[in-house]
Structures are given as C-alpha cells and as structure tokens.
C-alpha cells in the first residue's frame, strides 16, 4: 500500500550513452530469432566492450556488486529502445557478473506480463494481480543476488506501480526477539505451481554471517509457512515494519530497476489494460550473480 514516496538511487543515461548502448545492443537482422542462450553469450563481450566507453554508467551499475557499502536498488532511466531488448538486459546483467538461469523456473529472460488473471489466483509474473512484497526465488536453495527488471511497456494510468523496501530500514525498529525468531530455521517457502523443482525449502527469513556487513532476506508475503507461533508473531511484526518503510516507483518504459535480491524486497500493485491500447504492462526480467 502506498504510504510514503521516497526517491531511490537513479541514473539517467545521457544522449551519448543512450546512442552507444543502442548501437552495441542492436542485434544484426537475421532470419531466425536468436535463442536466449545466444543472447546471453553475446552479452558478456558487449558488457566488456562498454566498460571503457561508458565508465560512469558501468561503475554505477557495478557499485551494486560491493559487499561493503549499503546494498540496494538502482533505477536506470533513459535507456534506448532496441529491437530485441533481451540483449540490453543481459548486457546490464553481465556487468554485475553472470546472467543466471534456474532449472525449473524458465529461461534467462522472462516476460512479466499478463496472460490471464483469475479470481483466487496467486500473484505471479504471468497475471495482473497485486503482488505483495517478496524476494525472488525464495523457494530455491540459492536465490540469485541480482534481479533486473526492464520496463518495455507500462502505462502509469493503469496501475502496475512497483513497490520496494530495504530490509536494513525495516529492521531498524524491529524488536530483538523478533530478529532472533526470524533467524531461526523455521520458515517454509513453498514453490509456485509453475516451478518444476523441489516443492518447498525451509530457511530463516533473516541471515547474517559473521563477516557479512548486511542482512540477507528471503521473503514471500503471501506464501510463508511458519513452524512456531513465536515465529508467526515475529513475521507479523516484520510485515508491520515493512508497511512503514515501503516506497513506490513507476517503472516507465525504457527504465530498468536493478535490485539486490538479498537485501531489497519488491512487489507491485495490480494493473489493468490501458483504455487506448491493447497492451498490458510488460517488463523483462533476468537474474545475475557475481562471479566468485
């Protein structure tokens, strides 16, 4: 729910950067559409090629991949329109490390857009429902570090506002009892129907190793099973804190959100079809992991 609006860190590409990025992310016209594997293979050299061409932009993106400064969220604005936007998102992903695919989840680049929305259906990448705060792939053992969402079409008059919350901010006023409960291995994260892997995993919601500078979070508001009543109380407290710290951003077309999936929660409001077009909100999504 909209409670407060804060401005996340943003980077707006200048005209030169926009033109250059458009050039390097334009795929030569061929008879067949390149496979996702091909696109991902193309993206690493493209990313390497722009390091010197666009140092400010690249440094801004790569600064997210730093364990000693506050982790977070970066919004890129004024991205170029390209014929096949998959190369653009994979190139940005390659600047952060390796573009990742999860077996059982789908391909490298997934289109987040409405196929069909039915009453009683859980929110997902393929419907238009309100999607409560969550981290992506909470139901796999090793969720990806970075989540990238590239807005291809989004009419702000039709909803589909993105919501975000920084776990560090949410924990500021959480009781020590709740923090202790949330670190226990007592939360089950069931997988959604489309996932073809393990049916659920059990993990803490919060984790922090001795040498970690920041908390790691695993969360899915609408689908966590708790093994103890005290854990349930802690979860309720956490959700209450989320409500106070949540903020809303409209990802307009040619905008990309780069999210540290271990420390930032995201979600969206519901959306409808714009009156003047036949197109629903459409974001491309991919994951990236730092190269160890």
């Amino acid at each position: 729910m909209l409670n407060q609006l804060t401005r996340p860190k943003t980077y707006s590409l200048d005209e030169n950067e926009c033109t250059l990025l458009k050039e390097v992310c334009s795929i030569p016209q061929e008879e067949s559409i390149p496979t996702q594997e091909t696109i991902v293979n193309m993206s690493a050299p493209v990313a390497a090629s722009i390091l010197n061409l666009m140092p400010t932009l690249c440094n801004e993106i790569r600064s997210l991949n730093n364990d000693t400064v506050s982790p977070g969220l970066l919004i890129l604005k004024n991205l170029p329109s390209v014929a096949d936007p998959r190369l653009l998102i994979c190139t940005v992903g390659s600047l952060l490390g390796e573009v990742a695919k999860f077996s059982g989840e789908g391909d490298y680049v997934i289109e987040i857009r409405e196929r069909e929305t039915k009453a009683g259906q859980r929110p997902s990448f393929s419907n238009a429902r309100e999607f409560f705060l969550h981290t992506d792939l909470s139901y796999v053992n090793d969720p990806p570090r970075f989540l990238l969402m590239h807005s291809i079409f989004n009419d702000p008059n039709s909803g589909g506002f993105s919501i975000f919350c920084d776990i560090e901010e949410a924990l500021q006023n959480l009781s020590s009892n709740a923090v202790a409960e949330l670190q226990k291995d007592q939360f089950e994260f069931p997988a959604p129907p489309h996932y073809r892997g393990t049916s659920y995993v059990r993990y803490p919601i919060l984790a922090r190793e001795e040498d970690d500078a920041f908390w790691k979070v695993r969360f899915r508001r609408d689908n966590i099973h708790v093994l103890s009543n005290n854990g349930m109380g802690a979860l309720a407290e956490l959700v209450h804190e989320f409500r106070k710290k949540i903020f809303e951003v409209t990802l307009l077309p040619n905008t990309m959100a780069i999210i540290d999936n271990w420390s930032f929660l995201h979600g969206r409001t519901a959306f409808t079809k714009p009156g003047s077009t036949n197109q629903f909100r459409w974001l491309n999504r991919t994951y990236a992991n730092p190269v160890s």
Binding site: M1, L2, E130, S158, G159, A270, F271, T272
Partner: peptide
C-alpha cells in the same frame, strides 16, 4: 481492498480515498 487492488490502481481518487480510510 488493501489499497492496491484492481479497481483502485487506475482510479487515483478512489485509491487516495481508500488509503485515507484504511
């Protein structure tokens, strides 16, 4: 309504009304 459901997101005045009420 929870503030963010379908009838509200495309009707800003309604959304504002519901948020204030909630």
């Amino acid at each position: 309504y929870n503030g963010d459901e379908t009838p509200l997101v495309s009707n800003p005045k309604c959304r504002e009304f519901v948020i204030e009420k909630l």
